[in-house]
Amino acid sequence: MSAAPYVVAGWLFLMGCYGLATSRNLIHAVGCLAVCQSSTYVLLLAVGYRSGGTAPVFSDIAPGSRPVVDPIVQALTLTDIVIGATVTALLLSLVIQVAKRHRTVDPDELSELRG
């Protein structure tokens, strides 16, 4: 258990890379990139977890009454999620244009840039 979340994060990252490297469809590749990114969420939140801790929101618990988990990593993950969504949007719009101009979204067929 003590290292399971970290291992899962690494697994997601490598799986995403595998998908990116072997993808035959650029839309699928962008999805794989999103999988890669989810590894960073898992790692960050796992790093900030504290056994028995509760969420660092003090609207219904009294400050100091219970241990809380690390709020910093949560803020970082929030930022990270926004970045992920925007990068996905931008890459997908590029894929749409690639499909229009090259009439394919298969990276194997897109070999115009070479050498």
């Binding site: 962008v30 990139l33 990114q37 960050l44 590029l94 115009e112």
Partner: peptide, 30 residues
């Protein structure tokens, strides 16, 4: 330009992956 969008896409994918790698490293250092 067909090549422009393709080049931009490759650029985006590789650099984003680089960014996420950096973030994993930041997580480890944190």
């Amino acid at each position: 330009e067909a090549r422009a969008v393709q080049g931009a896409l490759v650029f985006g994918v590789v650099n984003s992956l680089g960014g996420y790698t950096t973030l994993l490293g930041i997580g480890l250092l944190y």
